[in-house]
Structures are given as C-alpha cells and as structure tokens.
C-alpha cells in the first residue's frame, strides 16, 4: 500500500485517478478499521489532511451553513456559532463515536462511506443539505437523496473528493437527531432518526424526517412526515411498523425491534424538535 499526502485538491484527484484502488484517507477512523479487517485492500491511501486549510471550515451566510468536508466531529460539537436551526448536527456529533474518534473523524468521511446508519447521513438528509464534490471534470453538487445509492455505495466517481456540504437555514425551523443504541456510551446506532421542522403558519408544520439503519441507505419517509406533521404518532408507529423491512443480518437488533423502535424514535425526535421550535 502506498501513502500519499497531496498538498492540493488537484493533486489529490490526480493521484486517485492514477492509482487504481486508491482511497481517500481523512480521519481514518473508518478506513483503518476496514483495512485491518480486510474489508478493503487499498493499493494506496490519499491522505487529504494537508487540504485542511481549504476543506476544514464552518461558515455562515444569510441562509446557509457551509461545512467543509474535513471539519472534524469535535469541530461541530464545540462550534459556538452553530445556528439553532441545525442543532441536529450537534446531536449527531454528541453521540458520534467517542472523544478520540471525534477528534479525527470528519463529516466528509462519515458521509463518503454511505453507511446506512451513519450519524450525519440522516441528519444532513433531513436538513435538505447538498453535498459538493470535486473531480477531474470540475465540481458538482448533489442532494443527499441523490448521493446515497445503497449500502456502502455513494454517487461518487473515481477521482472525486467530497469538498463540503451546504445546509439551508430555514427561518422558523428546528431540528433534532436521535438514535437508539444498545449501551449509553460509545456505540453504533441500532437505528437513528433526524427531523427538521418548519413553521409554515400558525397551524401547519413542514416536516422532513430521515431514518438511518432501517434500509440499505438513509431514507426519507414522506408518509411518515405527513403523519408527524399532524402529530399522529400512533399513525407513524403503525406506518413504520407495517412498511419498514430492515435486513435480518443486523448485529444490533432484530428487524422486529427496528420496526417497533422506528415510530417511537420518530415521536421522541419530533417532540424535541418541536420544543426547540418553540425556543
């Protein structure tokens, strides 16, 4: 295995294209684990941490939050200026791995693996964020829906690098992320749920609800959103129980548990988001 530490994005892209089987190394908290287990056998790793100057940022504009792909989870957890609309990012950061992992792991890395239960996958999906990619043919931007293709499969070409995320900040909105886990400390989620609420008028709420680890990729469930908007929690539970079809091979919970948990988790997540909406 070769190790490269390119000093520019262009160089990184070139190395990725030149070396078949090369992969990007950011925080390494997934790559190193997968490499050790033999799940991946990269011919080369392209350490992009020298691009931190370019890709490690959190910036606010009037109506958007821009997050660089090399932003660490600790950066997100402790950023004093995180707008309240996107508190779900902090929720996700808080339960992500553990301190040492958060210090290394990046938001880009968490997304790039297209793991169905990744903390920031459902979070960014619920927040209607876009992902920005750079490759040899220039840049492109995708919705999170379009980015996730299936378990471990992302809509990325060879030689592409995730450069950042753009998160809309809707006025009168709030968000929350929650997970179900086996233990209270460091653990992977059994399932997770992220919700964004927006006040439409005095009576109506717009809801975006995303679920992780219930299908082959993080998914929005539009029917559930509608029921949540009506606060029909029993309806949500019934819907998710009846329609979800989680794989039976999970080591964290049986499909039955996931089906039972999903609605309850959605209800909790919604209620916290609602409280946050109230201020």
């Amino acid at each position: 295995m070769r190790y490269f530490a390119p000093a520019s994005l262009e160089e990184a892209i070139n190395i990725l294209l030149e070396h078949e089987g090369a992969i990007i190394l950011a925080g390494g908290t997934d790559v190193m684990v997968e490499k050790r287990s033999g799940k991946i056998e990269p011919s080369a790793v392209v350490d992009i941490k020298k691009l931190e100057g370019e890709l490690r940022y959190m910036r606010l504009s009037d109506d958007r939050l821009e997050i660089g792909s090399l932003t660490t989870i600790t950066d997100i957890l402790h950023w004093g200026k995180l707008p309240h609309e996107v508190t779900s990012l902090k929720d996700a950061a808080r339960v992500f791995g553990c301190h040492e992992i958060r210090n290394r792991a990046t938001i880009g890395g968490n997304i790039a693996h297209a793991s169905p239960g990744a903390e920031f996958a459902s979070t960014l999906l619920a927040l209607d964020a876009t992902v920005q990619l750079a490759g040899k043919d220039g840049k492109r931007e995708l919705s999170m829906e379009d980015f996730f293709l299936g378990p471990g499969k992302a809509n990325m070409e060879r030689g592409e690098v995730i450069t950042g995320f753009s998160v809309p900040l809707l006025s009168g909105s709030s968000s929350c992320y929650m997970r179900a886990s086996r233990v209270d400390g460091m653990d992977l989620a059994i399932i997770n749920c992220a919700i964004r609420l927006q006040d439409l008028d005095a009576e109506n709420l717009a809801v975006r609800a995303a679920f992780g680890a219930v299908a082959g990729k993080p998914i929005r469930i539009v029917e559930a959103e509608k029921l949540l908007a009506r606060e029909d929690f029993e309806g949500v539970k019934r819907l998710l129980f009846d329609t979800l079809n989680p794989r039976a091979t999970s080591l964290r919970a049986a499909p039955m548990s996931k089906k039972l948990l999903a609605g309850n988790l959605a209800e909790d997540t919604y209620k916290i988001a609602k409280e946050r909406l109230a201020g």
């Binding site: 179900a180 086996r182 039955m256 039972l260």
Partner: peptide, 20 residues
C-alpha cells in the same frame, strides 16, 4: 436486550387485543 423486551411487550399488547 431490546429484542427480548420489545418482542415481549409487543406480544403482550397484541394479546390484549390492541393492534400494537
């Protein structure tokens, strides 16, 4: 674990005639 508890609670509720 959760699988056991959730399943047991579900079965009991079902037994009571509730739909869930």
């Amino acid at each position: 674990n959760q699988d056991r508890l959730l399943e047991a609670i579900y079965q009991r509720e079902k037994g009571k005639g509730g739909d869930k």
